[in-house]
Design a binder for these strands. Structure first.
Length: 295
DNA sequence: CTCCGCTCCTGCCGGC
DNA sequence: TGCCGGCAGGAGCGGA
């Protein structure tokens, strides 16, 4: 269930398996996920070595030595499973003992120094998708070209957000989910960051910008909250790396403890607050917030 | 151009 | 127990 921190955690888990390995065969077990797989994708990558794995926003990028990049988005339910090649009957695999078949849509047949590995992409809802990026095509790729700043590091600043929000007449909730402004935030971490910053999800994005065009104090708090919530989530994923490959081969992440997300009806965690976490629907998505703490 | 609502898909959970 | 509606962490698309 991937937002940026989860995708980064998955990237770290796949890195040692993919980097330096040859993709002997890319097995597409159906013709599409959310979109059809690009024509000739499997042929283009067959027999080519992976140079490294990277991430941009919620996209996983596998870089190949022929200059191609395999772009992968996990959608809502995409996950990777790592297993040694233990194929028994044709088309069946065992991931260290647990048998999977349903919703295994893509199988990466990898090898390194004669040792075979399989990585399976499994996606129940098939909201995920993959694209083949030709050499030097990253900058112009349609999924990547319009993305905003990463919520990590120094690129995200209150000044930058003030500029982006100045004319945004949408609720701040919607603006934070807009991948063209900040790339990588999803519903959970937006709810969490707004809670930490004490901002109502219903407030207009432009109301966080001063008349001078600079960021308000609340927008500065929000910027910091986003950085912290994302950094902590990545850290939590990282610390679970030891247990990263579960016994059944699934690449997992911690189920993080959230402050407001999915806590409708529960008491606000702020000391002496006493109010109850509410759930409202905004642009078709659930928002969770404390009406007392978030204004 | 911006913004909203709909949509893809399967599974799960709660209510009747 | 079974059936049905609602909901799920994403994001592209069409239309207003």
């Amino acid at each position: 269930m991937p937002e940026l921190p989860e995708v980064e955690t998955v990237r770290r888990g796949l890195e040692p398996v993919f980097t330096g390995a040859v993709l002997d065969r890319l097995e597409l077990r159906r013709s599409d996920l959310r979109f059809p797989f690009p024509e000739g994708m499997a042929d283009r990558l067959a027999g080519v070595r992976v140079s490294h794995m990277s991430r941009r926003a919620k996209y996983l990028l596998s870089h190949f030595e022929n200059g191609c990049v395999l772009l992968m988005h996990l959608g809502m339910s995409g996950r990777f499973l790592i297993g040694e090649a233990q194929a028994t009957a044709p088309g069946t695999f065992y991931y260290a003992g647990t048998r999977h078949l349903e919703h295994d849509h893509v199988v990466f047949h990898l090898s390194r120094e004669g040792e075979a590995m399989q990585v399976i992409y499994n996606d129940v809802r098939r909201f995920g998708f993959m694209d083949l990026v030709e050499p030097n095509g990253l900058e112009t790729n349609k999924y990547l070209a319009e993305l905003g700043v990463e919520p990590t590091g120094n690129t995200l600043s209150a000044d930058h957000l003030a500029k982006a929000f100045a004319k945004k007449n949408t609720p701040i909730k919607a603006a934070l989910l807009d991948q063209r402004i900040i790339a990588g935030l999803g519903n959970i971490y937006v709810c969490e960051a707004l809670f930490m910053a004490g901002i109502s999800p219903k407030r207009l994005a432009s109301s966080l910008v001063l008349k001078s065009g600079g960021p308000s104090v609340k927008l500065e708090r929000l910027t910091e909250a986003i950085r912290i919530v994302i950094a902590k989530a990545i850290e939590a994923g990282g610390s679970s790396l030891r247990d990263y490959v579960h016994t059944d081969g699934e690449l997992g992440y911690f189920q993080h403890q959230f402050l407001v997300y999915d806590r409708a009806g529960e008491r606000c965690v702020t000391e002496n607050c006493g109010n109850t976490v509410r759930r409202v629907v905004q642009s078709g998505r659930s928002s969770f917030y404390c009406p007392s703490c978030q204004r």
